[in-house]
């Protein structure tokens, strides 16, 4: 893998740090008029998701991380692994519980997701920004309520629980923003 100098650091660059793959968020050049130049860098650990700050001497080099994002279709789960496929090539990948993480609650068979691979091994799965899922469980709503003020919890077919307006019923399909976990609208079949 290539190495990168601090001068090449920019948002999105993937590097190895303490043996973990990381993504650079922000890079600030710090230099006293008379003294050593530093780069203060904000970095996300792609395994843990944690954001840390790390300082390098300017000009120092670090190893790049072989991290790529690929669009894949979610196929099914066998209980231990979640299976995905690259539609063009039919290549299949199995992601474990760690890699799937919280995304599991949005996964619906045949939906497209973004898989982040490190050395060709699944590191994390990002769901699409919007998913359409049907409601499997929710309290019956009050007749005539159309405003949705207040709302009620609803369990979706994938297992996620979101707040929905009172008029939304079991069996209906809704659109949800996975970044905020918020209900967007009902989906007409």
């Amino acid at each position: 893998m290539a190495t990168y100098s601090t001068n090449e650091f920019k948002g999105g660059l993937k590097i190895m740090l303490d043996n973990d793959p990381c993504s650079i968020i922000e890079n600030e050049f710090v230099k006293p008029g008379k003294g050593q130049a530093f780069n203060r860098v904000k970095i996300r650990n792609l395994k843990s998701g944690r954001v840390i700050e790390r300082t390098f001497k300017s000009g120092e080099s670090v190893e790049g991380a072989d991290v790529v994002d690929r669009e894949m279709q979610y196929l099914y789960s066998d209980g231990e692994f979640w299976h995905f496929m690259v539609p063009d090539t039919f290549e299949q990948y199995q992601a474990d519980k760690n890699a799937v993480g919280d995304t599991v609650k949005w996964l619906k068979e045949q939906d497209m997701c973004t898989m982040t691979l490190w050395n060709d091994v699944p590191l994390s799965v990002t769901p699409p920004n919007f998913v359409e899922l049907s409601i499997t469980e929710t309290d019956p709503g009050l007749k005539g309520d159309t405003s949705g003020g207040g709302g009620k919890p609803a369990t979706l077919e994938s297992g996620a629980v979101v707040r929905v307006p009172l008029f939304v019923q079991i069996g209906e399909m809704i659109r949800v923003d996975t970044r905020t976990g918020e209900y967007v609208s009902r989906v007409k079949e």
Binding site: P32, G35, F38, I52, T55
Partner: peptide, 24 residues
Amino acid sequence: QGHPEADSLCADNHALWLDFLFSH
């Protein structure tokens, strides 16, 4: 202060430590 890397960066260089601590 969340800068454990300072030790390997500055080692026994007093002036470098001062640059680091002063700017951070």
